[in-house]
Computed example of a mutant assay.
Amino acid sequence: MSEPDVIAHRGYAGVAPENTVRAVREATARDETAMVEIDVQPAACGTPVVIHDECLEGSRDRDGRPLTDAEGIVWETPLEVLQSARVLGTAETVPTLADVLEAVPETAGVNVELKNPGAADRRFGESLGDDERDARRAIWQPFVERVIDVCAGFDGELLFSSFYEGALAAVRDVAPRYCAAALVWDDLEAGLEIARRHDCEAVHPPRNAIAGTPLAETEYAGIGVGEPEIDVLEAAHAEGRTVNVWTVERWTQYADLAAVGVDGVIMEYPGLRARFRD
């Protein structure tokens, strides 16, 4: 049985300040790491920066810590403020995409998740009709152009992913030479439709969306308990698409996914594959 590739979620956010240069540098120094996953959105000037939440203080709990020591909407904040905002109480600050790519060796790939183009209404996880898709593509395109421009000098493997169809449509228009992945939330059929429509090389479903695993009996990412109605792994593989699953936190979860043949596992912690081998 071949083992899935290991993708470091935000640079192994379980052991390092997420989406920072330090996290990415430490993650890619590990032999097991095939790729590092990061989130991008624009500063007020349009410069792509690496941060997950739309608010600097964070929009979800991180063990009681704010995401940074600054406040405000990321895309409304000047770049110099973002670059001085300390992440999770550490000395690490919010980096630009260029800073992060400079820290990644050519031997590791980068999964760039397109998180936000600088707009509040983005149509999360939806398969869009033609007119709406064109409108959303137009919203995303200026930011995607900035991201692609920054990535042009990176010599390693690049994969662009998003929960937003408008973002994937923009990637296909701006830079069809790069690989793309449809991120899936609770609607597996919509995710597969989007992957087919934009000829995505990969699909990224949540860990409990994979049929035939104990994980399917757990609630996660908007999907309830029970076998999924669609075998997304079988469907994607039949169409020649890679399946990278998010987000794994324990070695047992890695083992369950490896057993059914997923291609990649997006992991919160390093070393889970080694535990599986033991």
Rank of each mutant, 00 (worst) to 15 (best):
258 A>V: 04
225 V>L: 12
110 V>G: 14
272 L>R: 07
48 P>N: 02
193 E>Y: 10
35 M>Q: 12
52 H>Q: 06
33 T>Y: 03
134 D>T: 11
229 E>R: 02
31 D>Q: 12
222 G>Q: 07
49 V>A: 00
147 V>S: 06
143 F>R: 07
23 A>M: 04
169 A>N: 01
126 E>C: 05
113 E>I: 07
234 E>D: 15
5 D>L: 14
253 Q>T: 05
251 W>K: 08
174 V>E: 13
174 V>C: 10
218 T>N: 06
170 A>V: 10
66 P>F: 00
190 A>E: 00
17 P>K: 05
5 D>F: 05
236 A>R: 08
125 G>N: 07
50 V>W: 06
182 A>R: 03
124 F>G: 00
223 I>V: 14
83 Q>K: 07
66 P>V: 02
255 A>P: 03
102 E>Q: 11
60 R>Y: 15
136 R>F: 10
67 L>G: 01
246 W>P: 10
256 D>C: 06
181 A>C: 12
92 E>N: 03
212 G>L: 08
166 G>R: 05
114 L>T: 07
101 L>Y: 10
73 I>R: 11
170 A>F: 03
164 Y>N: 10
19 N>P: 02
92 E>S: 13
137 R>Y: 05
225 V>N: 13
246 W>E: 04
19 N>V: 05
67 L>F: 13
165 E>S: 03
39 D>L: 11
235 A>K: 12
92 E>L: 00
44 A>N: 08
143 F>K: 12
138 A>W: 04
64 G>M: 05
64 G>T: 12
128 L>C: 02
149 D>L: 02
90 T>Q: 05
159 L>V: 06
136 R>M: 14
58 G>N: 12
115 K>Q: 14
205 P>W: 11
73 I>N: 00
268 E>K: 06
153 G>K: 06
234 E>N: 09
84 S>I: 00
161 S>E: 06
155 D>M: 05
13 A>S: 15
194 I>V: 15
205 P>V: 08
245 V>L: 11
218 T>Y: 08
78 P>K: 02
173 D>G: 01
119 A>S: 15
239 E>D: 14
47 T>H: 00
155 D>V: 11
191 G>C: 02
75 W>N: 03
187 D>E: 10
270 P>D: 07
267 M>K: 08
240 G>T: 10
73 I>Q: 01
176 P>T: 03
169 A>L: 00
50 V>G: 01
121 D>L: 05
97 L>T: 03
257 L>K: 14
271 G>Y: 04
38 I>K: 14
233 L>W: 07
167 A>V: 08
223 I>R: 15
212 G>M: 08
110 V>N: 14
207 R>W: 05
200 C>D: 07
242 T>I: 13
211 A>H: 06
8 A>C: 06
112 V>P: 01
261 G>Y: 07
153 G>P: 07
266 I>R: 03
239 E>R: 09
93 T>P: 04
144 V>L: 12
137 R>T: 15
261 G>M: 11
83 Q>E: 07
271 G>A: 01
274 A>I: 05
133 R>Q: 13
71 E>A: 14
258 A>I: 05
48 P>Q: 00
253 Q>N: 02
50 V>A: 03
52 H>R: 04
231 D>A: 12
47 T>W: 00
136 R>A: 13
193 E>R: 13
134 D>I: 10
59 S>Q: 09
